[in-house]
Nucleic acid binder design. Sequence first.
DNA 1: ATCACTAATACTCAATCTGAGCATTAGTGT
DNA 2: ACACTAATGCTCAGATTGAGTATTAGTGAT
Lengths: 318, 318
Amino acid sequence: MSATQRVIIGLSAVVVAASGKGPEVLLSGAPGAIGLPFGSFDPIGHRTFELAVRDFVTSQTGFALGYVEQLYTFGDKGREAPLADMGQSSDADRVVSVGYIALAGSIDEGQRRAGVWADWYRFFPWEDRRSEAGIRALELLLPDLKAWATTTERQSRVAMAFGLHSQSWQESQVLDRFELLYEAGLVHEAQRDRAKGQVLAAPPAERTYVGEPLVSDHRRILATAMGRLRAKIRYRPIVFDLAPARFTLSELQDLVEALCGVKLHKQNFRRTLERSGLVESTGAMHAETGGRPAMLFTRSAVSRQAGATGLSLPLAKR
Amino acid sequence: MSATQRVIIGLSAVVVAASGKGPEVLLSGAPGAIGLPFGSFDPIGHRTFELAVRDFVTSQTGFALGYVEQLYTFGDKGREAPLADMGQSSDADRVVSVGYIALAGSIDEGQRRAGVWADWYRFFPWEDRRSEAGIRALELLLPDLKAWATTTERQSRVAMAFGLHSQSWQESQVLDRFELLYEAGLVHEAQRDRAKGQVLAAPPAERTYVGEPLVSDHRRILATAMGRLRAKIRYRPIVFDLAPARFTLSELQDLVEALCGVKLHKQNFRRTLERSGLVESTGAMHAETGGRPAMLFTRSAVSRQAGATGLSLPLAKR
DNA sequence: ATCACTAATACTCAATCTGAGCATTAGTGT
DNA sequence: ACACTAATGCTCAGATTGAGTATTAGTGAT
């Protein structure tokens, strides 16, 4: 075992929940070294990865996961950081991490306090096209990105990923955007990995990074999860695994907007949703908003069937 | 190293090419133990999985791969078979395999002979809804599937996956269908794994299996690849990575039909394709067919941009 | 009570997209 | 010149979408 490196399989989970104000992810680790919940895979004890993920998330955080899906397996040398807290691994080992996304549903304040949750836009401010802050975050990055894009290949990648010209912003291209920022040296992780020999652009002078970093390649895993979730909303009814049991259509719309980081056209959103048959009205109403009371809906039986389709996202003019 | 099992990372590649008559996959192994090209990942020599995949496919088969994409990481205990030919692994090791799909483009007869290629419907006859043979293959399986579906949950899964009631056949649900057949004991692999302790239905009496098996869980990996490719056709212009450089619209349609296993409405296929801007006509014509000569097209610059959309599939009435 | 205010819900209209088919055209071989 | 075959053109109704304008049912303040 001296000549050959060992391979350690790590499992990372992006656990997403919807609180009142938007999508939040479960974090672990000490201040300054924040990351996703992470466990190492035990080839003897665990029969499948998915069981292992459910297992360690529940034991680390007390949450029982609902929907769980494998994201991607990350194995690039030089992008993972040795995880000191794992104990069992030495620097000589090669860590391969299998990323999972899990939906923990709608959580209440109590559960929220039980874990460390964070709005996912803390790590990706530019992904939120609803808020002024998000728009500004991107405007801050664009000049540097353009400066980096010296070849036409780079220019075209930037234009596509960020919806520059006629192309429009595709909310699910989270990973493409992050990778470009990484290659351009505009996120923290790039500097860390540059020190380890990755070929990456140096940061522009006096750079203030936009968006907080995460340990190892966890921000990349989170980007993958965001992209997957945003894409999947369109073709599978997974929003309902994040929404509370009963909701008004406006609440559902807010949730979808928060996940996708875009504004939708309200009337058209209702229309397609009601036609889709994915929701049905409970008789009950919900006042509290200061306007006309809204009907409370639930997901329908249809929405639970495998193969049920997702939501269409009628964008609102900006 | 006695108490803890070692983890071995295997890489499997589904290499797809389009010959004249449809999608073919590259195989390796001896008769009776046919599988996908498979290599083990060397944590020291290989910087990334993708490079490793390109490497071993090229060295095993001489093909340089074009488009490569990670599919899924398979790690269930009891579904992988120990791969005798690997030499380095012992029974005690846990093999985790990272599946990749690669598109080798359009190949000519010479290249075709250089490797062992097989029509992918040999392994999934029921996935071909174009041919009488495919329809009959499914009709053969359905009674047994229905017999297995004793709970409403199973019935609903079967109905959704195979498009039984009002639901329609979704060409990309290849994996769901295969998994149901596996659980129902209707494919070879189920018997093999049952012997290893998996909880699976016994085969119906005097069963003749429909579709050829592959080594280990390679048929599952192939199913994943087929599903991914079929789904991706709709939102990324990947057909062009399989089509020859110049093609008539009918040829392109044949290719898409072969990949998706369905028949499309010819006039509507042309219409959407021409509107999409993904193809442009070369001036040249193509006779050879005995009818009116067809215009030869190429993929356009638009189709090469990242973010370009895929094809819509206007189904033909059955 | 009445009024202003706020959200929710209803309705409208044109533009586009789709499914299905009928019709025409440009080659080939007789 | 004629039959045959595939490619290409054209049409039409129905469904879907984008973008509004118009009502309605609550709230709290005069």
